[in-house]
């Protein structure tokens, strides 16, 4: 149906979703699974950003850190403390995994804020893979560590006995909704912010509204910077929470 609302009379052209289209970078062929697309480009750029921050930035191994190195160390300490505080000391073995997710999401989110860029994390395909990865990892860890007693996660022994089956159903549903909310939260936040910016940008076509529109874009952009970080933080911290459930299911 209508992917764009085009009203020729006022000169307003809304293409809020066009920024999310996956296109081949070279040529005009179909998007096959190995085609080098703008997804590839911006994911590669986020890899470059991670490498610049955490590898090149710390290459001097300075005792008194430079600016880049201290940002890298800050990110390391931030995630490390988060894993330790939320998931517990025995979860520190999974720290590189969570750090990978966090750094990728942060870099992809911030790169998505560059004008004319492509936000890889705004795609449900991307976030769903990450969320399913977390879900499967956590579930497998739970079963490997605790065997079938992992299922006691759903059997709340502190609740009165008649309530327990009902609670178990609710717990199981909420357990399986986790990857859905986990992925849609991130994708939806990124998509919403970028779409809103695009809508306001389209309003700038009217000269009278243009200053207001630019002001609104600025404000939304500032909010988006905040959201970019907070969503990465939330994704990582929820991963830690799920990990804690898997490691210590008896609550």
């Amino acid at each position: 149906m209508a992917s764009e609302v085009n009203s020729e009379e006022t000169g307003l052209v809304f293409h809020p979703m066009d920024q999310f289209i996956v296109e081949p970078l070279f040529g005009d062929g179909p998007v096959l699974w190995y085609t080098i697309t703008n997804v590839t480009l911006w994911m590669a750029l986020s890899v470059v950003a991670v490498v610049l921050l955490l590898v090149v930035g710390t290459s001097r191994r300075a005792i008194v850190p430079s600016r880049t190195q201290s940002i890298g160390e800050l990110a390391y300490g931030f995630v490390y403390k988060m894993v330790e505080d939320v998931a517990g000391k025995d979860a520190l073995g999974y720290f590189p995994y969570i750090m990978t997710l966090f750094m990728f999401i942060v870099c992809a989110n911030f790169l998505g804020l560059v004008p004319m860029s492509f936000t890889t994390t705004s795609h449900i395909a991307v976030t769903a893979v990450m969320a399913m990865g977390v879900f499967l990892t956590v579930t497998l860890i739970g079963f490997f560590k605790h065997g079938f007693s992992f299922l006691s996660l759903f059997w709340i022994s502190s609740a009165p006995l008649p309530l327990r089956p009902i609670l178990a159903v609710i717990e199981i549903i909420s357990y399986f909704v986790r990857p859905v909310s986990h992925s849609i939260r991130l994708a939806g936040n990124m998509m919403a912010g970028h779409a809103v910016i695009k809508v306001f940008a389209a309003f700038a076509g009217i000269a009278v509204i243009a200053p207001l529109s630019v002001l609104a874009i600025t404000a939304i952009y500032a909010l988006e910077i905040l959201v970019s970080f907070i969503q990465a933080y939330v994704f990582a911290i929820l991963t830690c929470v799920y990990l804690k459930d898997a490691l210590h299911p008896h609550h």
């Binding site: 909310s181 849609i184 939260r185 939806g188 936040n189 919403a192 907070i230 933080y233 939330v234 911290i237 929820l238 929470v241």
Partner: peptide, 12 residues
């Protein structure tokens, strides 16, 4: 932040 995330997810 976890609470915010849960509340916000429903809005999303």
């Amino acid at each position: 932040f976890i609470g915010i995330a849960f509340a916000e997810a429903l809005g999303i």
